[in-house]
Nucleic acid binder design. Structure first.
Length: 485
RNA sequence: GGCCUCAUGGUCUAGUGGUCUAGGACGUCGCCCUCUCACGGCGGAAACUGGGGUUCGAGUCCCCAUGGGGCUACCA
């Protein structure tokens, strides 16, 4: 088998769409699986979409995710340049060659002319639109003369109007299409830059790409590319077209709703490994029942056979679960480090031992951005209603809550050493002495300490974190509330 | 409109003619653990889009219908 060379060819639009990233991931995995090369190429032939700093976004995501490329604009390689706008002369040369080979012709029609012809056709609604281009009949000499005279022109692909073109895709199988349904698209624009339709063929060939991984949107234009390969007499690469990732309802993931880019998830506190793991599984099945794979493991497990044909809906719930799995797999210290920035958003009080908070939150966190609202009560006791003290299953009501809170206040106040075990023993002794259920004491105490219905950790852990003075203060507040109900 | 393409529970999927009374995971529901929540454990509900063929036998092959997606740009 010859060397596997795959490429990731994003356009610098300023953000990394998650579906696009997945395509890059698969290209990377395929290369790694077979010990090949993964190449980064920048497709910036559309000047109108140029965005400042967008290439850095691409580098950054690749670096963060660990999809390390072997060749690319920043690190070079034997087949550069790797930025399409720097390959102008190359495209021009091949476009000229294609004219000679009969695979293309010079076209002087304006966009407007073609658009109006299309409109006219659409009114009739009769069969596929095919532009009957007068320029096709021009001789090369005539055309070149008009070019000399300064007319604006493009290179347009010439496609045989009879016959069919068949190609094989690794995931979709064999596909045959009537040549007559293929339109003769622009190869080189009047600004001298190529369109995707031309650049992808030239670059993939010159860069010796063995497997072309790209989205399904290119499936129907692939025959046009093969006609180009054939015109040049070049070997056709293996094609791997990947289905789309959609959101609920089969709609496209959108940039505007903040659910489409890698950064959107990264900034919300999703772990890189979890994101990669999740998107790898969206459209690819590893074969067994295992679902947790880090990048390294994916490299070994990946296979084209596991790729699916239908588009997959992005399910944030499953990502959340996976992210939680990765969080729980970390040590408490590792978690603590990741959680720290999120603690800062909710807690300013320097007396709170954040390590203890981490012990509580470690198994209770799925996404890091959920942290602040989970622990805001530690910073400040929220307003709460005394209804909270009444809990059927805990067998608590206003009366016994008040009584037990008073007991708790007294015994805790007399405590000299304030730590988890001391608090625990102290409270448990009282429970035993009074002959009540754990919950009848602990539920009111936890309520008084937190003012919340749900908290990470119970009364004892919270009291420990809050410290003696603050704990007693909050219990006192609870007692007052219940007395003045 | 034309062309291409896809189709198993709510979601991601396994299934390549008999082993399918359709398997796993997320989610969901119930129970257990338990001072709340979570973690963990156990259990439940939930799917082959429809119709025709082919075959002794079809989720699996073929055709049609329906529904979804894509392309139809001097965007990629």
């Amino acid at each position: 088998m010859k060397e596997v060379r795959t490429r990731f060819a994003p356009s610098p639009t300023g953000y990394m769409h998650i579906g696009n990233l997945r395509t890059g991931l698969y290209a990377y995995l395929l290369a790694k699986k077979y010990g090949g090369k993964f190449i980064l190429r920048i497709e910036d032939t559309d000047q109108e979409r140029y965005v400042e700093g967008a290439v850095d976004v691409i580098y950054n995501v690749l670096k963060l995710t660990g999809l390390k490329h072997d060749e690319g604009p920043d690190i070079g390689g034997d087949y550069g340049p790797y930025v399409q706008s720097e390959r102008r002369d190359i495209y021009k040369k091949y476009a000229e060659e294609l004219i000679e080979l009969g695979g293309a012709y010079y076209c002087f029609c304006s966009k407007e002319e073609i658009a109006s012809a299309r409109e006219k056709h659409n009114m009739l609604k009769d069969g596929p639109f095919r532009y009957n281009d007068p320029c096709k009949k021009l001789s090369k000499e005539e055309a070149r003369e008009r070019i000399e005279n300064g007319e604006s022109y493009v290179y347009r692909q010439r496609i045989p109007q009879i016959g069919t073109t068949t190609f094989k895709d690794e995931v979709f199988g064999e596909i045959t299409i009537e040549n007559s349904t293929l339109d003769e698209s622009v190869l080189l624009k009047s600004d001298g830059l190529p369109t995707y339709n031309f650049a992808n063929v030239i670059d993939d060939h010159l860069m010796k790409i063995s497997h072309v991984c790209r989205g399904v949107e290119y499936l129907s234009s692939t025959p046009k590319y093969n006609i180009l390969y054939n015109a040049f007499g070049w070997e056709i690469p293996e094609y791997i077209h990947l289905p789309h990732i959609t959101k609920e309802g089969g709609k496209k993931l959108s940039k505007r709703e903040g659910d489409a880019s890698f950064d959107d998830f990264y900034n919300k506190g999703y772990l890189v490994d979890a994101i990669i793991n999740y998107i790898a599984l969206l459209g690819w099945n590893p074969g067994g029942e295992r679902e947790i794979f880090n990048l390294k493991e994916l490299e070994e497990a990946f296979s084209i056979e596991g790729l699916s044909k239908s588009s997959a809906m992005f399910d944030i719930k499953k990502l959340n679960w996976l992210n939680g799995e990765y969080i729980r797999k970390m040590t408490v210290d590792e978690f603590h480090e990741k959680a720290l920035p999120y603690y800062k958003k909710a807690i300013k009080n320097p007396n709170i031992d954040l390590h203890k908070v981490s012990e509580l939150l470690h198994v209770r966190t799925e996404v890091l951005c959920d942290i602040p609202e989970q622990i805001d009560f530690l910073e400040e006791l929220p307003e709460y209603d005394t209804d909270l003290y009444v809990h059927k299953k805990m067998k608590t009501n206003y009366e016994n809550s008040l009584e037990n809170l008073k007991v708790a206040y007294d015994v805790l106040e007399s405590l000299d050493t304030w730590n988890h075990d001391e608090i625990n023993n102290c409270l448990m002794d009282s429970i035993k002495r009074l002959g009540i259920k754990n919950g009848q004491m602990l539920w009111p105490v936890r309520t008084a300490l937190s003012g919340k219905k749900f908290t990470p950790g119970g009364a004892i852990e919270i009291a420990d974190i809050l410290g003696k003075a603050e704990s007693l203060r909050r219990i006192k507040v609870g007692i007052d509330k219940l007395e003045n109900r």
